[in-house]
Design a protein around this nucleic acid. Structure first.
Lengths: 207, 207
DNA sequence: CAAATATCGTACTGATCGGTAGATAGCCGA
DNA sequence: TCGGCTATCTACCGATCAGTACGATATTTG
């Protein structure tokens, strides 16, 4: 392998070229489009025609690039999970001013849940957990793990802000529960402004 | 029976007998069974075979008695709505001890959401509102109205407990939001005991 | 008993579902 | 320019979906 390493560094580690006909669409933006479809319609109600239509690709391209519907869904979940963790983590970075940080976290979440106003989607993870029946165990695990991570990020924030472990855990569960409630009401069409006011009251009570 | 036979009006106003072959199943218990199926699986994932299987009736019997799938779903929603309104109303009857009444309301709700433990369902209305895409406008309206009623019952409770209109409305929205969150987490499999503790902390904050 | 009426059970319909076979098109190294 | 490889396209597959036609059955009325 020694000599081959020399050559193959540019051939294998460099994604410049792969053999065969190159893919004619962008995987990431196709994944974004699929995520939006699942987010709006849920797993079962998102047909392959819906998905391929939004992604702008044909059925075999979808299967070739992502596997079957479940696998595509799983990739969308993981993707969304990354966004949410990053967003919540960023908003809660500053633990010196818990009140302001929490409010920013809620504000960011509400903006995500209610944009665009014509099609509020709530939280993809919260919605996804309701279509449990039609989902594989792997998908269920991924969703559960993502939500557990959110709670862990919250608990860490409360600990950093000076609360004892037990109390921080309680506050994290309380905040996560309220956040799920916000997500539900966002999907029901409650205005972002109203949700934001509710979040303010909640944070007032909490801190 | 004899007396009623005497009065010939009974033929029309009294459902004692209708012409033709009598129905061989109980409409209410069939509706209960259908409600449980929708509650567990959601609208789209509940197939006609699932429904007729659980209801113990044949497909044409279902259509004869309830109309199509949407109409059956609507009847189940209305039925569930009646239960929930009655339960919440009863728990919140005593506004002299808000803390205890709220706790009882949450306790009842959590019991409903997590029973049986092997198949926690959360709140049918909250779940239903997430499958919006596949639902008719009538169903959507019915769900929205049911949830609005819950909020109205809460607001009335807070008003009776002595709060001003504005504050009572805020508290009602806060409580409803938290209740949706409880429903989501119940469906995710969080233990009833944990949810109850969270509800206690929330009520502590509120009152 | 027979006519009328409504339900029930079997077996079917067309539509749509997720998924794929097979041929073609585009890019590589040689 | 050619063989190997992979993506793409059209067209299709069996399975399942919601909904129904139709004959058999059960009950009331006359």
């Amino acid at each position: 392998m020694g000599v081959k390493d020399f050559v193959s560094i540019s051939m294998e580690t460099n994604p410049a070229r792969a053999p065969g006909r190159p893919r004619s669409f962008d995987v990431d933006s196709a994944l974004d489009a699929a995520t939006r479809v699942f987010w709006s319609r849920g797993y079962s109600d998102a047909s392959l025609d819906d998905l391929t239509g939004a992604m702008g690709i044909s059925r075999p391209s979808l299967y070739g690039a992502f596997g079957d519907k479940q696998a595509l869904y799983l990739k969308c979940i993981e993707r969304y999970r990354g966004w949410v963790e990053a967003a919540i983590g960023a908003a809660l970075l500053d633990s010196a001013h818990p009140h302001a940080s929490l409010l920013r976290m809620f504000s960011d979440a509400i903006a995500l849940y209610t944009t665009p106003a014509s099609e509020p989607r709530g939280c993809l993870l919260a919605s996804a957990s309701l279509s449990e029946a039609a989902l594989s165990q792997v998908s269920r695990d991924s969703i559960a793990q993502a939500l557990a991570t959110v709670e862990a990020v919250l608990a860490d924030f409360f600990r950093r802000s000076g609360l004892a472990d037990k109390l921080a855990g309680e506050r994290a569960r309380l905040t996560a529960t309220f956040l799920y409630g916000i997500s539900s009401r966002a999907r029901l069409g409650v205005a972002a402004q109203t949700l934001l006011e509710d979040a303010e009251r909640f944070v007032d009570l909490l801190a």
